[in-house]
Design a protein around this nucleic acid. Sequence first.
RNA 1: GGGCGGGUAGCUCAGUGGGAGAGCAUCGGCCUUACAAGCCGGGGGUCACAGGUUCAAAUCCUGUUCCGCCUACCA
Length: 883
Amino acid sequence: MSREEIAKSYEPQEVEHRWYRYWEEHRLFEAETRSEKDPYCIVIPPPNVTGTLHMGHALNNTLQDILIRYKKMKGFNVLWQPGTDHAGIATQNVVEKDLAAKGTDRHTVGREKFIELVWEWREKYGGLIINQLKRLGCACDWSRERFTMDEGLSRAVREVFVRLYDEGLIYRGDYIINWCPRCHTALADLEVEHEERDSHLYYVRYPLEKGDGHLIVATTRPETLLGDTAVAVNPEDERYQGLSGVHVLLPILDRPIPVIFDRYVDTEFGTGALKITPAHDPYDFEIGETHGLKRIKVIDEDGRMNELAGPYRGMDRFECREKILADLEARGLLEKIEPYRHSVGHCYRCKTMIEPLLSKQWFVRVKPLAEKAIQAVKEGRTKIYPTIWEGVYFDWMENIRDWCISRQIWWGHRIPAWYCEGCGEVVVAKETPETCPACSGKDLIQETDVLDTWFSSALWPFSTLGWPDETEALKTFYPTSLLVTGFDILFFWVARMMMMGLHFMGDVPFRDVYIHALVRDAEGKKMSKSKGNVIDPLQVMDRYGTDAFRFTLAAFAAQGRDIKMSEERIEGYRHFVNKIWNAARFVLMNLEGDEEPMLGHAPAALADRWIRTRLGEVSEEVSRALEEYRFNDAAGLCYQFVWHEFCDWYLEMAKQGLYGGGEMERKSTRGMLCEVLMAVLKLLHPFMPFVTEELWQRLPGSTGSIMEAAFPEPSAHTRDREAADEMKLLMGVITGIRNVRGEMRIPPSKNVSVVMDIPDPQDALVLRRNEAHIMTLAKVDRLEIEAGARKPEGSATAVYGENQIHVLLKGLLDFGEERKRLRKEIAKVEKEMAAAERKLGNRGFLEKAPAEIVAEVRERVEGFKQRLEKLTRNLEFFDEDDA
RNA sequence: GGGCGGGUAGCUCAGUGGGAGAGCAUCGGCCUUACAAGCCGGGGGUCACAGGUUCAAAUCCUGUUCCGCCUACCA
């Protein structure tokens, strides 16, 4: 077989496309619906159809893909269930913008046509993010891709809605909700983002209806006073005793409103008098309820003042504020204005200031559902990693409030409720009813509102598997194994899936939840388009290759800390990918095609025995790290092992067998190289799918895709403690010689002679057996090894354990330099020894510390002493020499 | 207001009771035919600050301070 032609550096672009296509064509991503193997299932957090891949997606999906590929190699029947989310408000906004550009709007187009247009838009652009996930290498089972507006998922939504309604867990009613005047819809509490703003606190005089005097109330929103129906004071407040039954006059409108007493009012804040606007403030609404107050709505759905706002009718809410302040001022009713900082709610989609508004909406009564969801986590049926998030989950679940699920938009699951024009009956049903069950009338009009997108997302772990049908997939994969997501949607999504899964499936939706960090920019700021600090993952993949990017994400995915991303770091890991490429290139260039698998054979060479041992240990550690979601540890272990053990030592030592040995040795070295490289590729495959597949396929003896290969298993018989110890000694002396060479600035081209004093005969034997390695790796041309060897003239000395390694530097040795070097070494050892001796001098330590710790410290001190003694003797040698 | 996380080498971060670590950057020596996207070697830290617990603290406790995030109905 001819030697492989292989490029000098790794070029990712072409490779990546080719292998992804290969995996898809060979249907390697597809799960078995029924299987003998244990199932392992992850449902993807469905990206928004309007979305494009950002750093958060990249991290989230890389982590999932690592686990999916790892579990597949471990022999599981894996399913990574993909799909997208219809993102009601966001998608509707995008299509509306399109319409606006064409000079029209959805109302002109009409509901039916508009929805058609959204579907068209989705056909055209909805696949974008899916293709981007493919670029990332995601091993999703695309044959099962779902969309929250699919026929099947829509059926699940209706089923859930109807059942919850029948159980009394969904109701409709007039309440204060968060209204976005721009999106023109209600929002759930969660969809409101609070932000601190500098504002003002206005003190307004409300004259008493009878007689002189007035009450002063403090407010941040003077425009809402038009809807005031009372002024509340605390019954305990001495300032306001005797106001029982008294009325004040609403400024400007001169409407008399009562003074009421309520414990809620904080006597410390403002003047202790609170204006009550039940139609425009959530708490005022509740006070209004308990006191039976009228609700006067003065702001409409566009954020404009309505006819009840009297002279301000038609004004925008902000414009009205200015005008009303001017009018109050003019009438002498504005007592004072104080600067005031408070948080204001904004729409999470469009950042418009939220208007709390009285409105008729649909709600889910979540308390009973939440209780079961809390219980499930308390009992450990679902585990949240890192556990810190369990606390956050409990806190939110325990204080949960009813969920407003109706949205006044068109794109989404239309609420399956019909109103009878004849008798007013509300019919909630899975299928469109023909007649009213109450009056048999045929005039039924469907509710125009649609459901919150998160309502359908909450069903994702079972709706995607075929529910409400009892499918095989559902039986095989529910409960799913793991959910991987960012904490920003812990409440939006995770909590709601828990509630729905428990309620409808009778079991948790997933066994584990892994919450990962947020990706920030290099300064730790949240990436956002407006800040202009976004790093586009697609550009990163183009520039550095997907494998380097994925490895970077894994390496930085430490639990509980945000990731500060910068391109420099990705570049560093591109070097690592290239390193692997070149290591494989070296192996491939030396293979001759007649290599026999060495597995089962016991290799004689030290390096071979050692690398097998390390391979076993490292695979075990990497496996454990992945099982515990310590991605950074897993990546770090791979990096350290592959670069600093496999490349730096094993490959270098293999050259000896390749170029310096006999026929048998050459052949067995080639076999081992092939075996070890295969294992290394398999170890790395979950992190770097593309480069590992490319190299795997080039290796003789590999069959099929690396995706289907078995992850390296640590097997007990490859553990070779002796080889590890011997390697340690060998590396120690080689490093010792290199230290001397480096510090003495001996160029690599210059060989040196070395005399070693090795007191232990066994150690001496090991080193003699590996003389050739010492000579090549430390650039030594003459090597003498014996117990009690004398220090030659003009030599610098490295001390390793009880061994002294004298490096002959005839003529090259700068005595001053060597003295300096030894003194530095001595100082270092002395410092460490002093610390250890201090411990031994402490009676408390000797008495109370565990025996093995004491023994360990004793041993250490012994080592230091020995070393120190040898270093000192060498130093003295020069002092004499000098004299 | 409440809660959480963080402050360790120039930078980014691991390390949760017993010898301060990694990567990058930096400095010195090398184009040694797998790799200069590389090799070999060196330097660099009062582990934010102050107390405490302990034989022993980067690690546990208390307080201070700075940064970040989440959450909330004081208008």
